[in-house]
Design a protein around this nucleic acid. Structure first.
Length: 601
RNA sequence: GCGCUCGUAGCUCAGCCGGAUAGAGCAUCAGACUUCGAAUCUGAGGGUCGGGAGUUCGAAUCUCUCCGAGCGCGCCA
């Protein structure tokens, strides 16, 4: 049995290091030139399991620079790897792959490492540059609807993932509390205020928000100010109505987010940029102008479809083309006020000034055309130091049993986030939103996601966890010395540490250990790519392996059951394996913000 | 017209900085429960990876081009 070292907790990284060591050896012997770029050397599981546990492309990516043939180099590398104490067999295949089979003890060591680390398994070492993730940022003009849901869940899971990978993460929400939309909100609230005072307001006029959710805002205004506001000019009541409405809308949005288990560290007000002691939007523009990145000029009308009311005029422009955008972008409207983009530049500048060079924004698909200019702006305000990655989450098509759920925002009968969460549950919403790449359109079927079958990946994965827990509940009569739950995971881990893992010899058992051992690598890759959906797919695969192994211990092969009545030691070893599985399932589900239940109900 | 995103099995989708014979689920067909939860599992059939060209040892993946879908296109946020 190998020791539980840092190596065994990340087998792939360790084997890569061993391959690199073999290459170092070849360099020392003069068989390989020094100073080759080895960045492309990978160790990964081959697609076809019959090729072994791991494969490396080292010979193929280095052969050209080394001036040798891939298969010759592969043979030289293989010769050194054969001496490695972890490696059982080395085979060269295809154009120069080196296929490795590890000694089973390596995988057993990986399992032991999982047990020792518990819920810290696969956690990255703390460090790296601080990263700022901005997500949701829904306008505070009403409750959140389903469309907001996906970005919220995605951003939250991505932030969880980056934090777990070791990065210092700040989760941020940008409140669009300036501009025309919140003025409309303020006027709509004022109407409800008059209504609350007993006035008959009739139908809500066009151009104001009709939703009932503003009724409480009107009542609150009436309670706080009585009739005082009613006869004042708009310039006096609007700021009050607007402020009250925004605050109440944000409280509602926070509640909605809480229902989804989504939270933010920072709520950043757009209005604070212009209403503070200094006009930070103006200051940002002035600073950019001083650097020659802002100028007064004219834009050509859009090609193909020029607007009817196009008016050629000189305006304040950001030199976005210098930073990779297609066209320079206006910063001021014709009435002299700032464009949304201008505020957004100041806002992103504030992120840079707060020490973030690594920015992630999560946006809806309708903002796709905005990406280049924002990335250009981030480069401009940070002198190229900071980078912005914009994750576009695509549309969610809401269905019920295959039929589209009709939504009309104009009629005010859109489906709210809260309705969906209440109907299908937080776990189902979160998992399904993450069980898809962010940039692919998502069909969300309200009927299907509460179905309890293999068709529904949420239940499939959760069932895997519950099944593992169930095995522990049933094992007590064979291993009565098993610590009680209330003693906590550390006591259980200590007990499992004495398990004779060398008795895990079945290919299905080794396979499970191998899958578990891939988790740290998966976390690293998913974090680097900003792709939390990879976790969801991995968990599905792990649950699948586990269900398969469970069922193999059926009528034909009772010796493969996890609980063996007359063999407590073997049962103990298999319980250790089950614990490894449920640990990873639980950690992974935790990153997705989905519960890992002990029982299915 | 331009830009962004997407196009993989009948349907819904994976495919990890280019890698070996392109994988899952659903659906279809054939099987597995007197004992650890059948909310599960085993097997079969099903593919011009939208079309074409290029880059190279090698392309679903990178480049170009065409076709198709969605989103966006100064003074909305």
């Amino acid at each position: 049995m190998l020791e539980k070292t840092k190596e065994t907790s990340h087998v792939f990284a360790a084997v890569l290091a061993r391959v690199q060591a073999a290459l170092d050896g070849l360099v020392r012997d003069g068989a390989l030139p020094a100073g080759l770029d080895r960045g492309r050397v990978l160790v990964e599981p081959p697609r076809d399991p019959s090729h072994g546990d791991l494969a490396t492309n080292a010979a193929m990516v280095l052969a050209k620079d080394a001036g040798t043939k891939p298969r010759d180099l592969a043979e030289a590398i293989a010769e050194r790897l054969r001496a490695d104490d972890w490696i059982a067999t080395v085979a060269i295949a295809g154009p120069g792959f080196i296929n490795l089979t590890l000694k089973p003890d390596v995988w057993r060591g990986a399992l032991a490492a999982v047990l020792a680390a518990g819920t810290n398994y696969a956690r990255g070492v703390p460090g790296g540059a601080p990263v700022n993730v901005e997500y949701v940022s829904a306008n505070p003009t009403g409750p959140m609807h389903v469309g907001h849901c996906r970005g919220a869940v995605f951003g939250d899971a991505l932030a969880n993932l980056l934090a777990f990978a070791g990065r210092p993460v700040t989760r941020e929400y940008y409140i669009n509390d300036a501009g025309a939309q919140v003025d409309v909100l303020g006027r709509s609230a004022f109407l409800r205020y008059r209504e609350a005072l007993g006035e008959d307001i009739g139908a809500i006029p066009d151009g104001l928000y009709p939703g009932d959710y503003l009724v409480p805002v009107g009542k609150a205004l009436a309670r706080r100010y009585g009739p005082d506001l009613k006869d004042k000019p708009e310039s006096e009541w609007l700021p009050i109505a607007r402020r009250t409405a925004i605050d109440m809308m944000m409280a509602m949005i926070r509640d909605d987010l809480a229902a989804l288990n989504v939270r933010h560290d920072v709520f950043f007000s757009e209005r604070s940029l212009i209403e503070g002691e200094t006009d930070r939007v103006g200051a940002t523009i002035a600073a950019l102008r001083a650097e020659g990145k802002v100028y007064e000029g004219r834009l050509p009308p859009p090609k193909g479809a020029p607007p009817e009311d196009w008016e050629d005029r000189e305006q304040t422009l950001f030199r976005a083309t210098e930073f990779g955008d297609d066209i320079d972008r206006p910063l001021k409207k014709s009435d002299g006020s700032y464009t949304y983009f201008a505020s957004d530049i100041a806002y992103h500048k504030s992120k840079v000034e707060r020490g973030f060079d690594d920015l992630i924004d999560v946006w809806g698909a309708d903002h796709g055309g905005y990406v280049k200019r924002m990335q250009a702006a981030v480069k401009a305000v940070s002198d190229g130091r900071a980078a912005l990655d914009v994750k576009i989450v695509q549309l969610v098509k809401l269905l019920r049993a295959g039929q589209p759920v009709k939504m009309s925002k104009r009629a005010g009968d859109f489906v709210t986030l809260r309705e969906v969460v209440d109907e299908v549950g937080r776990d189902a919403v979160r998992f399904m939103m993450l069980y898809r790449k962010n940039d692919a359109v998502l069909d969300f079927d309200l009927a299907k996601v509460i179905e309890q079958s293999r068709d529904n990946p949420v239940f499939y994965v959760q069932y895997g966890h519950a099944r593992g827990k169930s095995i522990f509940r049933n094992a007590r009569e064979v291993v009565p010395e098993m610590p009680e739950d209330w003693k906590g995971p550390a006591v259980l881990a200590l007990w499992l540490a004495s398990a004779p893992l060398e008795r895990l010899v079945d290919p299905g058992e080794i396979g499970l250990m191998r899958t578990i051992a891939q988790f740290p690598r998966l976390i690293e890759a998913a974090a680097a790519a900003h792709e939390p959906h990879r976790i969801a797919f991995y968990l599905y695969d792990l649950a699948s392996d586990f269900h398969a192994q469970y069922t193999r211990g059926g009528k034909d092969s009772p010796h493969l059951r996890f609980i063996i009545q007359d063999d407590p030691q073997l049962t103990l070893a298999r319980l250790a394996l089950v614990q490894g599985v449920i640990t990873v399932l639980s950690v992974g589900l935790g990153l997705l913000g989905v519960e890992a239940p002990d029982e299915m109900r």
